[in-house]
Amino acid sequence: MKILVCISNVPDTTSKINFKDNNTAFDTAGVQFVINPNDEFGLTRAMWFKEKQGASVAVVTVGDASVEPTLRKALAIGADEAYRIDAPATDGFFVAQELAALVKEIGFDLVIAGRESIDYNGGMVPGFLASALDYQYVTNCISLEIDGNNATAIREIDGGKETLGTQLPLVIGGQKGLVEESDLRIPNMRGIMMARQKPLHVRPATTSESHTKEISFSKPEAKGAVTMIDPTNIDQLISLLHNEAKVL
């Protein structure tokens, strides 16, 4: 089985978000970039398939040279090789077309992406990719088992979960649950040393079409001050929720 893990390079979850150039661009100053958490769960699951089922695992990011430390980290965690499509990720449609071109050329049976990137929260790349490839598709995946050509996936739904039977070739959008939090791997020294020897292929983009354009950004309005209520005066809370906030 040949697995491709799609990795989006995103601001660390603790980042303060600021915009620059008259609010037309995300300000990356002082921001640390990490593997998108949803993709980290997918990568760890891919390692399991590698160790238990002999799969090969490649990782890919569409982005400029600044994403390479993130790809090296994925190699240090255990991926066999990495691809970087050398183009800014203008929108989800563009990224998916680029990923589709790579999948078609190299031939992967299983593509593991995340349910969404925590930066632009698009949640569309894996679905667009599955459409472009005509692969099966399951997102919000919290469990994935592969047996030959058959796959069993569990996805989270509103208020529960459901089990799906499907087949390779397959694209999934993964998230926490795909592996347990405690199974996530931190690269060790040996992994980091080995990662330096592993191939990181840089390829030019093959398409240029995008469907959306970010015009500007804004921040949520500052919130009013909190009203503190004495713990011995619960009646006041109920009265405020009823009369002021009108939510009771």
Binding site: K16, F19, N121, M124, H211, E214, I215, S216, F217, K219
Partner: peptide, 30 residues
């Protein structure tokens, strides 16, 4: 396609919508 749109379009020609981004830490006008 624009997901997570929170209001009616800011303009319809060009067609620009406001959506949450950066996990609710910001909005993108797309």
């Amino acid at each position: 396609f624009a997901p997570n749109v929170v209001a009616l379009p800011e303009s319809t020609a060009p067609f620009v919508v406001k959506r949450t981004a950066f996990s609710n830490k910001g909005f993108a006008h797309t």
